[in-house]
């Protein structure tokens, strides 16, 4: 598969170049450490007062924090840096070079930049999830692990498509770098908690407008055994829908770009 080979090459070079950015890697590690600490502290404060939060126990919420860090890490590994680079390419006109290459332009745009420092978050996220599971004492069987993995991939896909669609807006508005910052802030702040704790309107926003729910809460539900079949199927359907819609939007944007740029 050509696409996989291209992705593999980008990732390989990203790993090879991490040595050039040791400081960057250390800062990533430091920042994820700070983030984890504040998350755990706020959990400690809340569970000093109560035993459950809308049905979620402390250790379940620790698992959720782990999932959030993991998804954030996967996002920061390729998607976010690539989308930032994409908007830069549109602004500077260097997207031209991507379009003159015999490969899928969406693919090239989506994997063009690898920030290998985010591996730190992936590792920390996994460690937190495993710790939480150990404390919960739940045995996650093969099917449970598979379900979790599928939900994780679906969630990450939804986030990717969402960010791609946001970045595609740059074809019309050129300077919209801040749009990614808004997503990031929402993801970091609202994503720390299961969305079931929010009031209805906010829950709807975080599910459909800014799909934090599918990125974090749904995979966490799958690990803690509270995922319904309906939600599972809806998540998969939504992921597929996002893929189709964002690709369609990308093509519209591209047509706009090739039709108008000088």
């Amino acid at each position: 598969m050509h696409a996989l080979m291209v992705i593999r090459t980008y990732l390989k070079l990203g790993v090879l170049n991490v040595v050039q950015y040791r400081a960057n890697f250390l800062f990533d590690l430091l920042s994820v450490g700070v983030y984890l600490t504040t998350s755990l502290l706020s959990l400690a404060v809340i569970f000093g007062q109560t035993q459950t939060l809308r049905g979620w126990t402390r250790d379940q919420l620790i698992a959720l924090v782990g999932i959030q860090i993991l998804v954030g890490g996967l996002n920061g590994l390729v998607i976010r840096p690539s989308m930032q680079q994409l908007m830069e390419n549109i602004r500077l006109g260097t997207l031209d070079f991507m379009l003159t290459k015999p490969a899928d332009s969406q693919l090239l745009a989506s994997v063009q930049q690898v920030n290998i420092g985010s591996i730190a978050e992936v590792v920390v996220g996994l460690a937190v999830i495993l710790t939480a599971l150990a404390r919960l004492g739940t045995e996650v069987g093969a099917d449970g692990a598979l379900l979790f993995l599928v939900m994780l991939v679906a969630g990450a896909t939804i986030v990717y498509c969402f960010l791609l669609a946001l970045s595609t807006c740059a074809f019309w508005f050129v300077r919209i770098q801040n749009i990614l910052v808004i997503f990031q802030a929402t993801f970091n702040e609202a994503g720390r908690w299961p969305i079931t704790i929010y009031p209805g309107w906010l829950r709807a926003t975080l599910t459909f407008l800014i799909p934090v729910a599918f990125a974090v809460t749904v995979p966490a539900e799958s690990l803690t055994g509270r995922l319904t079949t309906l939600t599972t199927l809806a998540t998969l359907a939504l992921a597929l829908g996002f893929v189709a819609a964002s690709r369609w939007f990308w093509r519209v944007g591209l047509r706009h770009y090739t039709g108008a740029s000088a």
């Binding site: 291209v6 090459t9 070079l13 170049n17 006109g93 260097t94 070079f97 290459k101 015999p102 090239l108």
Partner: peptide, 21 residues
């Protein structure tokens, strides 16, 4: 305009082109 990736060694950009082409 330049198309080589800014932060990585030139030869790595070449390898990307190898994969793409």
């Amino acid at each position: 305009r330049n198309q080589l990736t800014w932060d990585i060694p030139v030869i790595d950009s070449y390898e990307l082109n190898r994969a793409i082409f």
